[in-house]
């Protein structure tokens, strides 16, 4: 049971820590790092509050929204996180290049404040969603403890699980320091975008099976496109990690593919638009 506690805590925290670790490392390279980190920490604290609230509803202590409303809330949270990630990456691309030279004009500062809200919300959602599951798991396991030895090993494993997760966080910070910034920036940017695609696909999957299931959509929407479960099943440990972090599916249906195409298509349009604007502003002063 204790190995299981370590495993669950570490795995559930991976997603949130990836987001927070990347944002944290990125902020260290900014002129206004202190302000950003305050916003991020605020988001983390709010995330724990949200996790506890959601967990209480899952356990049945409180009736926080009905079942249907809660699933809409979850879909909204997941989609919101995906949108915030994309917005964050666009922002980073814009400001990451100029690094410390930006933040000069009043307008820039105003734009920055609204983006700090994005950092806050992203951290809160990342912790709130996965955190609520961890809280339910730990609380339920805690109720089963009988002896002092049980309690000790339980807390030991919970701390060990958190330790593994913090190790990942630390690795990201070290990576940011020792690897060339440009390379780190590129890699983490793609990690965030893939995570965004995974969150969006999960949200759309819930939308299809929970809210659109009453309607008879055309049969081809549900048709399996390919089946790679024999090669790498998304139920396996590595496969499910890849599903959480990069939207991997071993038996995707047409709906999944359409939603991923929507995500990456929108992203391509936004990036193209940003590139054109970037080029335009560079030419303008000359």
């Amino acid at each position: 049971m204790m190995g299981q506690v370590i495993f669950i805590v570490a795995r559930e925290s991976v997603e949130a820590l990836l987001v927070i670790g990347i944002l944290w490392a990125w902020m260290a390279h900014r002129a206004d790092a202190r302000a950003g980190k305050t916003w991020l920490l605020g988001g983390i604290v709010a995330g724990f509050a949200l996790a506890t609230m959601l967990a209480l509803a899952l356990v049945g202590v409180t009736t926080f929204l009905g079942a249907a409303a809660r699933s809409w809330f979850e879909i909204a949270m997941l989609s919101m996180a995906a949108v915030l990630i994309v917005q964050m990456v666009l922002w980073m691309r814009k400001h990451g290049r100029t690094l410390k030279r930006e933040m000069e004009g009043e307008l820039d500062r105003h734009v920055a404040t609204s983006n700090w809200w994005g950092v806050f919300a992203l951290a809160m959602i990342a912790i709130g969603r996965e955190g609520s599951e961890t809280v339910v798991f730990l609380y339920g396991s805690f109720l089963q403890l009988q002896s002092l030895a049980n309690f000790l090993s339980f807390f030991g494993s919970a701390v060990a699980g958190l330790g593994i997760a913090l190790g990942l966080f630390w690795a990201l910070q070290v990576g940011a320091r020792f690897v060339s910034w440009k390379w780190f920036f590129r890699v983490t940017e793609w990690m965030l975008l893939f995570l965004g695609s995974a969150l969006f696909l999960t949200a759309m999957g819930k939308l299809l099976s929970k809210h659109l299931s009453a309607f008879d959509l055309p049969g081809w929407v549900y048709a399996t496109v390919w089946d790679t479960s024999g090669v790498l099943s998304d139920s396996s440990m590595f496969g499910s990690l890849l599903a959480t972090l990069a939207a991997y599916r071993s038996q995707p249906i047409v709906w999944d593919i359409l939603m991923l195409a929507l995500y990456w298509g929108t992203l391509a349009v936004l990036f193209g638009w940003q590139k054109r604007r970037f080029a335009a502003t560079r030419i303008a002063p000359a």
Binding site: G60, A67, L208, S209, T224, S233, R249, Q251
Partner: peptide, 29 residues
């Protein structure tokens, strides 16, 4: 079940009913 797009946390004694969208013939975990 990633393959059936289902995910539900269940505390002790709790139950839930989930609708599964039509599946092509095959095996799902």
């Amino acid at each position: 079940s990633n393959q059936m797009r289902l995910e539900e946390v269940l505390f002790m004694g709790m139950d839930v009913t989930m609708t599964v969208t039509p599946l092509d013939s095959g095996e799902y975990d």
